[in-house]
Design a protein around this nucleic acid. Structure first.
Length: 367
DNA sequence: TACCCGTGGTC
DNA sequence: TGACCAAGGGT
């Protein structure tokens, strides 16, 4: 517990809440999910916006609501279709959980979203932040949201130097946030503090000149705006080397659905051989083809592989695409063991794919 | 608890 | 170019 400001030892700060509630209507952006109290629409927007900028999530919100106007529509949708709509947003477990939760709401709650923070927390993909957001925005419950914006604003205004990257910081900040939230209008207060963090008290170059709480702000008064919040650095991303076998035969391309605990679960890519080093020896490539039962014209095997780099938040992927034209379709047994299936170009577009796969297919004019 | 899960924008 | 960051959650 790092207390730099005696300001925060007060039981509550009605001034702080009122300042934000005054600031909010004069600065708020006009966003579609701010025009509804429908819990389904609010839940959808909150899942989409997790670790995602408003400008990136906006078109997805519109598309999802158009494709699935009600929670029943979403519950009845095939997983592959939901993932395809989600394509390009990242963190694809959000999309799988989205559909599972829709089914949960239909089957266990009669199609009505639960109306309290505690019940909302039981839904898959709904954690403390999202439960508080839905409970306050849709049902007016007084529970404080705690997201990246709130961490930053509270850290600066109240001079809290606890490392916000540590899970233990959550307790301290949540306790403060719960004290500060307005009794009269918890929904607008929650919107206000996040919006304030997003457009005024920004990570870089915050607008302190026109800040309504700068006289009370610990960081501003002590020249520590650039130092707060304290956040330890993330672990460096590791590099992985992928060798994709783009197996082609006539109009067909072979892909398979990714599973397991690795990245891109539920999405489709090509047959993959991962190596500890960048290069794949020709011998290893031929051995892999042998195992697949793939018959490839030998003069095509040595063509240089296309290299594409793809950066994820926690790892770097260096992918080499080996385009291989088959003399004959893959034998049924190879399909069975590898999970590969042949798709025509028109079908490829319908499959949910990682961005790097879509980029490759587009570059090669396959889709 | 520590680590895992994507992508695009910004400086 | 690379590090940081964005309305977090699951395991």
């Amino acid at each position: 517990m790092n207390k730099l400001s005696n300001f925060r030892t007060q039981p509550a700060q009605p001034f702080f809440a009122q300042a934000l509630l005054d600031w909010y209507p004069r600065h708020r952006r006009d966003l579609p999910w701010r025009h509804t109290q429908n819990p389904y629409a609010i839940w959808l927007s909150e899942i989409i916006l997790q670790q995602t900028r408003v400008q990136q999530g906006l078109p997805y919100y519109e598309r999802f609501l158009a494709a699935y106007p009600t929670v029943q529509d979403l519950a009845n949708a095939p997983e592959q279709e939901v993932l395809r709509l989600w394509q390009g947003l990242g963190y694809y477990s959000r999309a799988r959980n989205l559909r599972l939760t829709a089914q949960q709401v239909v089957n266990e709650y009669g199609g009505q979203f639960p109306g309290t923070y505690a019940e909302l927390l039981k839904l898959r993909g709904v954690g403390p932040y999202t439960a508080a957001a839905i409970a306050s925005f849709a049902f007016g419950e007084r529970v404080a949201v705690l997201d990246g914006n709130v961490y930053r604003v509270l850290s600066r205004v109240f001079g809290i130097t606890t490392d916000i990257a540590l899970p233990a910081a959550r307790k301290e900040f949540q306790q403060l946030a719960d004290q500060l939230i307005s009794y009269e209008n918890p929904a607008d207060y929650n919107q206000a503090i996040m919006e304030f963090g997003a457009i005024q008290c920004t990570p870089v170059n915050p607008d302190c000149l026109f800040c309504p709480v700068r006289e009370q702000c610990f960081a501003f008064q002590h020249g520590m705006v650039q130092q707060l919040p304290v956040k330890s650095k993330a672990k460096a991303a590791r590099t992985r080397y992928f060798h994709y076998f783009v197996l082609r035969h006539g109009e067909q391309v072979y892909l398979r659905r990714r599973g397991g605990k690795d990245i891109w679960h539920g999405l489709f890519d090509f047959h993959l051989l991962e190596t500890p080093e960048a290069e794949l020896p020709a011998k290893a490539l031929l051995a892999e083809l042998e195992q697949l039962g793939a018959r490839v014209a030998t003069d095509r095997v040595s063509e240089p592989a296309a290299l594409m780099r793809h950066t994820l938040s926690h790892q770097k992927v260096e992918a080499r695409f080996h385009e291989l034209w088959l003399d004959a379709p893959l034998p049924a047994q190879a399909l069975q063991s590898s999970g590969l299936e042949a798709y025509a170009a028109a079908q490829l577009d319908e499959l949910p794919k990682p961005v790097i796969i879509t980029n490759y297919l587009e570059q090669k004019s396959i889709i």
